[in-house]
């Protein structure tokens, strides 16, 4: 279980987050919505332990992430960024094996067990056939699936995803949504997903946390929180929201700037 407790943060005197609190129960997918600059990415960094909050704390299974070592945090949760570039020609398999870093001691080389975990993660994301390909030659959607495989090899229990579909085409966006839903269903993977794509969030997330100017605007079950009033308060946009019978989830159609 992840808990964010009264977290505040400021960059050089400028408040980015104020008293943000929410809980992510085990096995739940929670979406983090908010306009640009609302503090979503900062919040994700604080949960991942790569940024220290000014006040408050984030905890994983009852432990404050700032009291855990980098390796301890990395063994429990993995981060999937919007895009991943490699400066050198690593193979897909190398990228996934790098997820094993926090599980290895200094000077220890990955063993058969790590290789098995990596291959299993590749299989789970449908990328086993890409194993030997250079990572930099993959398409955006393929790269993202490989990075998710690396995240699974690192810490299969909790994933933090920062706009995982923002730079992908429509088909790849649907692939990633289906993959994340499958991982959640089959393995009970807990996820926090930052996104600007409201329909992606509606198709994926059981619960939403809406953040505006560093404060929680609303939180709760997606069906309760994803309302025209909240969208207007969040983005200053008038939108129609309806349940789409064929998609089987709420859909948001933006109408105009409010």
């Amino acid at each position: 279980m992840l808990r964010v407790v009264d977290v505040s943060f400021a960059y050089g005197g400028q408040h980015v987050l104020r008293d943000v609190s929410f809980v992510v129960p085990r096995g739940r997918i929670v979406g983090l919505l908010g306009p640009n600059g609302s503090g979503k990415t900062t919040l994700l960094r604080i949960v991942a332990g790569t940024l220290r909050p000014l006040r408050g704390h984030a905890e994983i299974d009852g432990a404050d992430v700032t009291t855990l070592s980098r390796r301890d945090v990395a063994r429990r949760l993995a981060v999937v960024p919007q895009e991943t570039h490699s400066a050198f020609d690593f193979k897909v398999q190398d990228i996934v094996l790098m997820g094993r870093y926090p599980h290895l001691r200094a000077f220890e080389i990955e063993g058969p067990n790590d290789l098995a975990i990596a291959r299993e993660a590749l299989a789970a994301t449908g990328t086993l056939s890409l194993e030997r390909r250079p990572f930099n030659t993959l398409s955006g959607g393929e790269k993202q699936r490989v990075v998710i495989a690396g995240a699974l090899a690192q810490a299969a229990e909790v994933l933090l995803l920062d706009e995982p579909t923002a730079s992908l085409d429509l088909g790849s966006q649907l692939d990633i949504a289906a993959l994340l839903l499958r991982l959640n269903r089959d393995r009970g993977t807990t996820m926090i997903v930052c996104t600007h794509d409201l329909n992606f969030a509606a198709s994926l997330c059981a619960e939403l946390v809406l953040i505006r100017q560093g404060r929680v605007l609303a939180l709760g079950a997606t069906a309760d929180v994803l309302t025209p009033e909240n969208i207007r308060a969040l983005y200053d946009v008038r939108a129609d929201i309806m349940f789409h019978p064929r998609a089987q989830h709420l859909t948001v159609v933006p109408i105009a700037r409010a």
Partner: peptide, 17 residues
């Protein structure tokens, strides 16, 4: 260094100091 070549943020998230 392998991990840092994916970016410092990505390396930190994988447990690198």
């Amino acid at each position: 260094l392998d991990l840092i070549s994916l970016g410092p943020e990505a390396a930190a998230a994988r447990g690198v100091d």
